[in-house]
Design a protein around this nucleic acid. Structure first.
Length: 626
DNA sequence: GTAGGGTTAG
């Protein structure tokens, strides 16, 4: 009761001439100073921050002020006070005011709110219902929808859009189909409704359904295209996304910031450097990235460059940005980390924190920990970790991985036990990585055993075990390989690709299907010979799993990344070679690529799922830890 | 002087 000391008197203001007409003095300092003197009084009486004044001002409560009170965060919007406003509204017959009705219903929430609405003077008005829908959690929103159907409320476009958004958030394709049916029967056909429908299906994993709606739309706007393209990109269908972009450019002939921001991640993921550059040119020409308050376009561009191998362009954009938000910093920190510049990444993170202009969120922390990992900065990482108030799995994995990569195995184990992470597979996998690098077979084996218990059908775990032995014990590696086959598990096949004159050329292990295969092998043999004779190169024994399931394992230079590099060398006489591989680079290929970069005097950038290797002059940016 | 809607980046 003491929370609401004015509660009992609050219902009194209707009594004319009550002694509480004047504002209590102690409330004055809360008034917000307003510059225009003529408006001062009117505004301040409506400000939710000081709603008491309105009720205590003596006259009949202003129905326009009550919704503001109800939606305020003050204790006055709490249940006891709300009931009093409700009874006041009933007494004064104010519920015909749709605004007051809406805010009361909203304040009652999705369970009790509908009763109030259905008993109001205009129960079918969709607006208050929609308001309630928009503020409910997805599950309640769908329940509310059923209620609306029962009560025969006529839903309009906005109501359907709100409903479909909720359905998308719920992610249930079954519900999406049900809603879709009702919307179709309603006959509403404006483009915004259809856009919402496409998005709903995409969010529920119904790419096919979304495509059907998309294709059936006679009128499409930029939002339609953006929604569909982003949908493809998010479901991993990058090439479909890029294809649709080209179709859109042909048909629409215009683009906007939203669209490019949505499609750039596709370029980043398929390392379609050229496509990305084209989009960059368009952005510059159309001045799309000019929003200084929300640098989404620049951030996406930066991310695309960083992830398709061009860290330098990314840095240039970052430097030129007037306003950087948390994402801008995170992209750059992560970018440095990916390109073997972990120290720079950690320094950037410190600068970000020091400046204090943006909120340092958990993704920024993860990027910084990733950078510490990349440069093996164990102490730096430990100190970063102490600043994290609520670490997530990704942070734990990065920290445990860092300890292990640094060779601090006892600490890594203590860390896992201290934070009760013994059943957390991402953390365990990160530690195995360090065991592999430092050849700590015993600990690696033990952890992988734990992992196979957690995920017995995940082939990756057995591959890890095999790779752990790959450098020493061929027999063991073979045995594990047989186990995988016996269990009928599928392992990933290795492949690499290179973009030459806008065309992507892909290679598998020992691939001979490329039209220029003969020349590729010939070139690689020639280089191998130079490496052996002039550089004293001796291939190490390596029975890493991911590339040995082909019969051509005996061909030293037959790994997919080498074939892609070979094609690059014979097709482009100068410039940087950019190759992408779907699995980690093997040790021999890594050694070879270093030497080749020196022999031919060219830079080779090889991307694997974890990082970029910049081979130049015989060294790699990863400092041989990967 | 008051209430409901679709697209973007780490």
């Amino acid at each position: 009761m003491s929370l609401f000391p004015l509660q009992s008197s609050s219902l009194q203001p209707q009594t004319p001439g009550a002694p509480k007409r004047k504002q209590p003095k102690n409330l004055k300092p809360q008034q917000t100073p307003i510059k225009t003197p003529t408006r001062t009084f009117k505004w301040s009486s409506l400000l939710p921050s000081n709603p008491l004044q309105t009720l205590l001002s003596g006259e009949h409560p202003d129905p326009r002020a009550l919704p503001l009170i109800l939606s305020s965060t003050s204790p006055l919007s709490s249940p006891p006070f709300r009931s009093q406003i409700h009874s006041l509204a009933l007494k004064l017959n104010l519920l015909s005011n749709p605004h007051l009705l809406s805010s009361l219903a909203l304040s009652y929430g999705p369970t009790k709110g509908p009763t109030l609405l259905s008993q109001s003077p205009d129960p079918r008005n969709p607006l208050p219902w929609t308001l309630l829908l928009s503020k409910s959690n997805p599950r309640s929103a769908l329940k509310l929808f059923d209620k609306m159907l029962q009560l025969n409320i006529e839903l309009d476009s906005v109501a359907y859009i709100v409903l479909m958004k909720a359905c998308g958030q719920l992610g249930s394709l079954r519900e999406a189909k049900r809603v879709h049916k009702v919307v179709r029967l309603s006959g509403l056909s404006d483009v915004v409704v259809h856009n919402a429908m496409v998005k709903m299906f995409l969010e529920c994993g119904g790419v096919e359904e979304a495509t059907r709606v998309f294709e059936g739309m006679r009128v499409k706007d930029l939002v339609t295209w953006t929604t569909m393209i982003v949908g493809f990109v998010r479901s991993g269908e990058f090439n479909e996304g890029l294809k649709l972009l080209r179709e859109m450019c042909r048909k629409e002939g215009r683009i906007d910031g939203f669209l490019v921001t949505g499609v750039l991640p596709a370029c980043a993921r398929v390392s379609a450097h050229k496509n990305g550059k084209e989009i960059h040119a368009k952005i510059v020409r159309l001045c799309l990235g000019m929003n200084n308050k929300a640098p989404a376009v620049e951030n996406a561009l930066m991310d695309m460059y960083v992830k398709s191998g061009n860290i330098e362009y990314g840095k240039k954009i970052f430097k030129r940005m007037d306003f950087k938000d948390a994402i801008s910093w995170t992209v750059m920190i992560f970018g440095c980390s990916l390109h073997g510049e972990g120290e720079v990444g950690v320094e950037l993170f410190k600068e970000m924190k020091r400046k204090g202009e943006v909120f340092v969120d958990r993704t920024a922390f993860a990027a910084a920990l990733h950078a510490a990992n990349s440069a093996c900065l164990v102490e730096e990482g430990k100190s970063l970790f102490t600043f994290l108030s609520k670490p997530q799995v990704e942070h734990y994995a990065l920290m445990a991985g860092l300890l292990s990569r640094g060779g601090y195995f006892i600490e890594a184990r203590a860390f896992i036990e201290e934070h009760k992470l013994t059943n957390c597979s991402p953390v365990l996998k990160a530690v195995v990585d360090g065991c592999r690098i430092h050849r700590n077979i015993r600990m690696g084996k033990r952890i992988i055993e734990q992992l196979t218990e957690l995920e017995p059908l995940n082939a990756d775990n057995y591959v890890m075990l095999s790779n752990l032995h790959a450098n020493e014990k061929l027999e063991m590696a073979k045995e594990i390989k047989e186990t995988i086959q016996d269990m009928g598990l599928k392992t990933k096949k290795a492949y690499s690709w290179i973009e030459i004159r806008s065309k992507v050329h892909a290679f598998g292990t020992g691939d001979v299907s490329h039209p220029r295969s003969e020349a590729i092998y010939w070139e690689l043999e020639r280089l191998m010979k130079t490496m052996r004779e002039e550089e004293g190169y001796v291939a190490r024994e390596d029975y890493s799993f991911h590339d040995v399931d082909e019969e051509r394992e005996c061909i030293a230079c037959g790994h997919s990344e080498m074939l892609a590099i070979g094609l690059g060398l014979i097709s482009q006489r100068s410039g940087v070679l950019r190759v992408t591989k779907n699995l980690r680079v093997c040790r021999n290929c890594h050694d070879s690529a270093k030497l080749i970069s020196r022999i031919v005097g060219r830079k080779i950038i090889l991307k694997d799922p974890e990082r970029f290797h910049h081979f130049k002059g015989g060294v790699c940016s990863c400092r041989d830890i990967w």
